[in-house]
Simulated assay, not measured.
Amino acid sequence: MSARTLLSLLALCCNLICLPAWAIDVGEQAPDLTAKTLDGQAFDLHKQLGQVVIVNFWASWCEPCREEMPAMEAYYQQHKSEGLKIIAISMDEPEDDQMVHKVMAHYSYPAALQRDADFSGFGRVWRMPMTYVIDRQGVVRKDGSVGEPKIDLPLLDTLVTPLLTAH
């Protein structure tokens, strides 16, 4: 086992011990989430009231995460004018910043690094991808910590489109 892998496992264990394990239940108000995006912009979930927001926790080394991203991009391009926002929080370690930037260069929705974000109210990010959907009133409509099928266009249409059309 390489030193880098060992350090990553140690960091993961520390995160598992230090962070609460609760999940946010569907129907609850979304917790605070603030971040400085890769392009230096401020993101504040509570300032997104009136928008439908997808919060996606991912990592560059996570193949299922990267498989979902093209569908999220296509859906975002189709629906951003209807009030859809996406924020992708990279859980990568600092030594992987270059890879995060390389991956995100293919997508137009904003991303942030975990160290530049405060999402403690979401509890422990214990697996990836973890994707939450928050409606226009700031209520969680999809809990990302619950086992889920892969995010794809049909699933986004089922989960998110009704929230975009409901006012």
Rank of each mutant, 00 (worst) to 15 (best):
K47W: 11
E68S: 03
L84V: 07
Q78T: 11
E68M: 01
T165W: 10
D25G: 12
S2K: 06
R66G: 03
L163W: 09
S145I: 01
G121V: 02
Q41W: 11
W58S: 00
V26C: 13
A23S: 10
D143V: 02
A74S: 15
A23H: 07
E93H: 01
D97C: 11
L156R: 02
D157V: 05
R141C: 12
G138K: 09
E28P: 01
W58F: 05
I54Y: 07
D97Q: 14
L163T: 09
E67M: 10
L49S: 12
G144D: 03
S108Y: 05
I54Q: 01
V100W: 04
D152I: 07
W22R: 15
D96F: 12
M128N: 06
E93L: 03
G50R: 15
I134K: 00
D25R: 11
M91Q: 11
S145P: 02
E148P: 04
D143I: 04
L38W: 07
L159H: 08
G27Y: 04
Y76T: 08
W58H: 01
F119R: 00
R66N: 11
P94T: 04
A23F: 02
E63S: 15
N56T: 10
P64H: 11
V55S: 01
V55C: 02
M99Y: 09
L7H: 04
I24L: 06
G147E: 13
G50N: 15
Q41C: 13
D143K: 03
K36Y: 08
C13G: 12
M130F: 00
P20I: 06
A88Q: 06
A88R: 06
L12D: 08
A30S: 14
S2T: 14
M128K: 05
M91L: 10
V139M: 08
G40T: 13
L164N: 09
A74L: 10
M130Q: 01
E82K: 15
L153Q: 12
T5E: 13
V55H: 01
V139K: 10
C18S: 14
T161W: 07
G138H: 13
D92A: 08
A71T: 07
L113A: 11
V103R: 01
L45Y: 02
D135M: 05
V26H: 09
R66W: 04
P70N: 02
P94M: 09
S120M: 05
E148Q: 15
Q78R: 14
Y75R: 00
D116Y: 11
A3M: 10
Y107L: 12
G147A: 11
M72F: 06
V100K: 02
V133K: 00
I86F: 04
L12V: 09
